Amino acid sequence: MHRMGISVYPEHSTEEKDYDYMKLAAKYGFTRIFTCLLSVNESKEIMIKKFTKFMQRAHELGFIVAVDTNPEVFSRLGATPYNLKPFADMKVDIIRLDGHFGEVEDIAITHNQFGIQIEFNGSCNTALDLMIDRGANIHNMVVCHNFYPQKYTGLGWNKFMEFTNKYKALGLPVAAFVSSNNENTFGPWPVYNGLPTCEMHRGMPIDLQVRHLLATKKIDDIIIGNAYANGDELKAISQVDKTKITFKLNLSDNATEEEKNIIYNYPHFGRGDASDFMVRSSITRGDYKDKRIPYHKYNEKYFHRGDVVIVNDNLSYYRGELEIVTRDMPNDGERNFVAKIPDQELILLDLLKPEHLFGFY
């Protein structure tokens, strides 16, 4: 089950603003919070008091909370890998280790008596496989990628997938960050260019960032790295279909009601006997065997990658089949052009595998 999350940075805001944001996110079904202790410059006593209250409010709204830490934070709180009581007293759900202690200590912390989950950095080549071989408690281990405040420093897509595949192969849940495009957002550090994990997502519509991560079928939890996302962004994420790849469409003015019905009101699966030229969804053919889909003229000589077409009466045996073009192919009059996937959304087409469910909105 996918969980959506927000980030909250109490040291850079007010309790009232944070709580209002948490309530709004809870309204839209968000259930995770990421917060950072690395940037907090307060005494142990004030930090514990402040974050205990924060945890209580978060839990009342149904959130689980992860706190970003390193050995210095542990030292300030009087905690060690063998004693997590200060975190337990604050009711922390997940401790994210931005820095490591050592092989023995990193294994020991996964066996803490409080059942606090330990979250390891997924954006580096951490030897979690060796830790597990040497007795780390895999049931208490999760993984979360970094976010990157500085432009052009976010993970490249191939490196992101390399790390993600490594940790998923171990059976570990993996989380990653997307970034709000709202004005005046902030994070733990004084840099204000968004907080995505992947550089290609910086500035992209937030629902597309989410749909792209979901399309990998490897990311479990998705967290908005910067605060505060606006209500429209939270709503857009809440409306993403998390069960399948979904594409936005630019619908053709010539698309008929029957063609719209085929596009929007049927489940679509790419056929297993996949072509290089198209993704074929044949499930609609049975219903349109004895119906008509008249040819309508389309002036382009070729269909292009991302065009959505439906087989018409000129090839009646396949009438009603919906196809997404993946490589330029001639327009021979046997298919009606009904819609186009916007260029920005074509990254999703790269991840659509044969026989996998997809849809449009």
Rank of each mutant, 00 (worst) to 15 (best):
H2F: 07
Y9K: 06
P10E: 10
E11K: 08
H12A: 13
D18I: 14
D20E: 14
D20K: 15
M22R: 09
L24C: 12
A25P: 03
A26G: 04
A26I: 06
K27F: 12
K27A: 09
Y28C: 11
G29S: 06
R32Y: 10
T35Q: 10
T35G: 13
C36D: 15
L37N: 11
K44T: 14
K50L: 10
F51V: 06
F54I: 11
R57G: 02
E60V: 07
G62L: 14
I64Q: 15
V65G: 07
G78K: 02
T80G: 11
F87W: 09
A88P: 03
V92N: 10
I95K: 09
D98H: 05
F101G: 06
E103S: 07
V104W: 10
E105P: 02
D106A: 09
I109F: 08
G115R: 13
Q117Y: 09
N121R: 11
G122F: 00
C124F: 09
N137A: 12
H139Q: 14
M141S: 03
V142N: 08
V143D: 04
H145V: 05
Y148T: 08
Y152H: 11
T153S: 11
G154Y: 01
M161G: 10
E162W: 12
K166D: 06
Y167F: 15
A169E: 12
L170G: 04
A175K: 04
F177N: 06
N181G: 15
F186M: 14
Y192N: 09
G194L: 03
G194I: 06
L195D: 03
P196E: 04
T197I: 02
I206K: 00
I206V: 14
I206N: 08
L213G: 14
L214F: 07
A215G: 09
K218A: 12
G225C: 02
Y228F: 15
A236V: 15
D241I: 15
D241Y: 11
K242D: 04
F247P: 00
F247S: 02
K248T: 12
S252V: 07
T256E: 09
E258V: 00
E259W: 10
I263Y: 05
Y264G: 05
Y264F: 15
Y266A: 10
F269E: 08
F269W: 15
R280G: 02
S281F: 03
S282H: 04
I283N: 00
I283R: 04
G286S: 12
Y288D: 06
K291Q: 14
R292Y: 07
I293V: 00
Y295I: 05
H296K: 13
K297N: 10
N299K: 13
F303N: 08
D307K: 03
V309G: 01
V311T: 15
N314R: 14
L315C: 02
S316F: 09
Y318A: 06
Y318S: 03
R319Q: 10
R319I: 00
R319T: 01
G320I: 03
E321C: 01
L322Q: 01
V325K: 04
I341Y: 08
I347V: 15
E355V: 04
L357D: 06
G359P: 01
F360G: 01
